[in-house]
């Protein structure tokens, strides 16, 4: 554990909590892509199956359980409890394509051709692109509530901080997992436009509206 990874994890945790608070307080999931949340739930489910086979630390286990539970809770809020507020007609990204491509890539490019390893690899590839339905939705509506943009900023920062963690681990521990590193770079890259808008608008107290 190093400082980049810890802050990255905290940022990830903060993102999930911000999202749950936003939905719970406003009794609404308006502006949130249910498809992105489904993809994140699939990511956690496939990746954290190793809860049963591989113990790393109390910290690791606790975080995994929290991420799994919170992602299922989010899905419940969006598709059941507050489903009347879900903007289905704006959440139109063809996310099936992301799943198909991630499955194919995981079968072709992995560290080891075993069930658990392919599921892990699939989760890494899928996570890299899971935010696309959400970003697409914002592009379509042209705006996002400020709390939604805080959520996205925290979520995007997490993988960016993990890149610093991977650089640190490469030099200090000789640890390199190039599947995670390359996917993490793609994942962080997808947020670049959003980061720019967040820093130039939201941080100055303006709303996140896209230039026409």
């Amino acid at each position: 554990m190093n400082v980049f990874r810890l802050i990255g994890d905290m940022s990830h945790l903060a993102a999930i909590i911000i999202l749950l608070i936003k939905i719970w307080r406003s009794r609404s999931c308006s502006g949130i892509s249910g498809k992105s949340q489904l993809l994140f739930t699939a990511v956690f489910t496939c990746r954290y199956l190793d809860l049963f086979t591989n113990f790393v630390s109390i910290y690791n286990t606790t975080m995994k359980i929290f991420f799994l539970a919170s992602s299922y809770a989010t899905i419940y809020l969006i598709f059941m409890k507050f489903k009347a507020t879900y903007n289905r007609n704006h959440d139109t990204f063809r996310f099936e394509l992301l799943i198909v491509v991630s499955v194919i890539l995981a079968l072709l490019i992995n560290h080891e051709f075993s069930a658990t390893e392919i599921l892990w690899t699939f989760s890494i590839y899928l996570e890299a692109v899971a935010i696309l339905p959400q970003l697409f939705m914002i592009t379509k509506t042209g705006e996002a509530e400020s709390i939604t943009s805080h959520y996205l900023f925290a979520l995007g920062s997490y993988r960016g901080l993990y890149i610093l963690n991977w650089i640190y681990r490469y030099y200090v521990e000789g640890h390199l997992d190039w599947i995670a590193v390359l996917s993490g770079i793609v994942q962080t890259g997808l947020y670049c436009d959003f980061f720019y808008l967040y820093i130039t608008r939201v941080m100055k107290g303006k709303n996140l509206t896209l230039p026409a």
């Binding site: 990830h12 591989n54 975080m63 963690n165 000789g174 640890h175 390199l176 997992d177 190039w178």
Partner: peptide
């Protein structure tokens, strides 16, 4: 260069 032999990250 050591490739991760187990996944210890989240």
């Amino acid at each position: 260069i050591v490739v991760a032999d187990q996944h210890d990250e989240l």
